[in-house]
Amino acid sequence: MMNNDAVTPQLPAADPAGSAAIEVAHLVKLYKTTRAVDDVSFRIARGSITGLLGGNGAGKTTTIAMIMGLVLPTSGRIQVLGCSMPEQSADVLGRMNFESPYVDMPMRLTVRQNLTIFGRLYAVANLRERIEQLAADLDLGDFLDRANGKLSAGQKTRVALAKALINQPELLLLDEPTASLDPDTADWIRQHLETYRKTPWRDHPAGLAQHA
């Protein structure tokens, strides 16, 4: 973990056992002459929730994209759940999930169809039961067979959260999880995330929340 008072950050030690959910060392991303990410190092332990904050152009999105293996870093080392990214992204992406207000699910498909597709993508066993369980947990029952495009903002966020939890991820990346929600719904989502974090069936879920 980085010490704020030190001039040079303590480098994360090698983590063969995979005790850290995310481990980033000396990460750099150059776009032509612009340094989008400049020597970033941090380590996020399993079972913790970390917030990544910053203004526009601070490099949050690029950092997250590199952690997920979507963007190749110019230099540096990334380990997610004990696997190095982006080389082993295929092994890791099935164990994590993502939710963002800037990403939608297909509008014309119903909530159930959407969850079925993502459940299959993540190779979820007993998918039908899992969808029913998520519908009960997140209160989706009323609109499970309604087109995604016809839902309210709060309902869409709940559906997006259901998609993010469908594979019971070990690592959950949330981008502004309660953006554009009324205070009650936002509170409800926060409570649910807190509950998920303490679920007994997953030993150490970790989260990385990103905010503008």
């Binding site: 950050p9 970033v40 917030g51 990544l52 904050l53 203004g55 601070a58």
Partner: peptide
């Protein structure tokens, strides 16, 4: 825990 980024750095 909170990490604050600015101009590509922590």
């Amino acid at each position: 825990r909170v990490i604050i980024m600015k101009r590509g750095r922590i």
